[in-house]
Amino acid sequence: MKLTVSQIEQKANDIREDIITMLEHAGSGHSAGPLGLADIFAALYFSILNIRPEEPEWEGRDVFFLSNGHTVPVQYAAMAEAGFFDKEELMTLRQAGSRLQGHPEREKLPGIESTSGPLGSGLSQAAGYAYSLQHIDNVHNRFVYVMMGDGELNEGNIWEAAMFAGKYKLSQLIAFIDRNNIQIDGATEDVMPLEDLKGKWESFGWHVLEIDGHNIESIIDAASQGRAITNRPTVIIAHTIPGKGVDFMEYDYKWHGMPPNSEQAARALEKLRTLDGKITHEGAGV
């Protein structure tokens, strides 16, 4: 289902509300990363990815790997909004017996392409998939997308995969980096500096784009550019604000691994439902 830009913006807001509600209900989980990724996931699931929510294993689908598995609440929310499963199931996040594990598991939930959580392994899986399509099966109308966190780039496995994808010119591979500048121990540039990030990826043979990760048009355009490049893999460095949309969470690395309590969730939902007080919204102030 491809939506217009303004419809996708509304979906991103719905996804943020879902994230707050499910995390508060779960009582544990990561807040900042998922909120920061809501715009990109809305763009992925409502414009970029060629998928059939009612047929997750459709052979002609585009494939999406989530490498930074701890941000999976945003993927669950986007999948529910897109119709992979009922939104009610979001409330089972992290509960015993749920298909919505704290970190995603392929065998539990159709539509999850791989199990992830331990960082650094998504890019190489996406590269393996893209290699199969491009160099073995000669299928050139399917694309493989992967989301990585920026803190995750500390992992050596990422750079092994970056070399690999560069060598084999995996042009059907399009990677996103969630450049939100935070990781658990603090600012990325304090913990382990990543800059010159663009230069690093270019030197590994990648086509590099830098965008505002909250601008739906930019996100869709960048993916489109990535698909048009035929001699290199593409990486999209998406600058995002951790906790985006909930003012008291924005930019604060303390919200990396913390859920909101009920009072914080109520405040967050009011912000989201009124777009920070700019509009009135049915159900605002609940």
Partner: peptide, 21 residues
């Protein structure tokens, strides 16, 4: 050929398995 990169070796393989290999 994946080069001297054993972490990549098995994770690329996992992605290829997802692609039906």
């Amino acid at each position: 050929e994946v080069g001297v990169a054993e972490q990549n070796l098995v994770t690329v393989a996992s992605g290829m398995a997802r692609a039906g290999k």
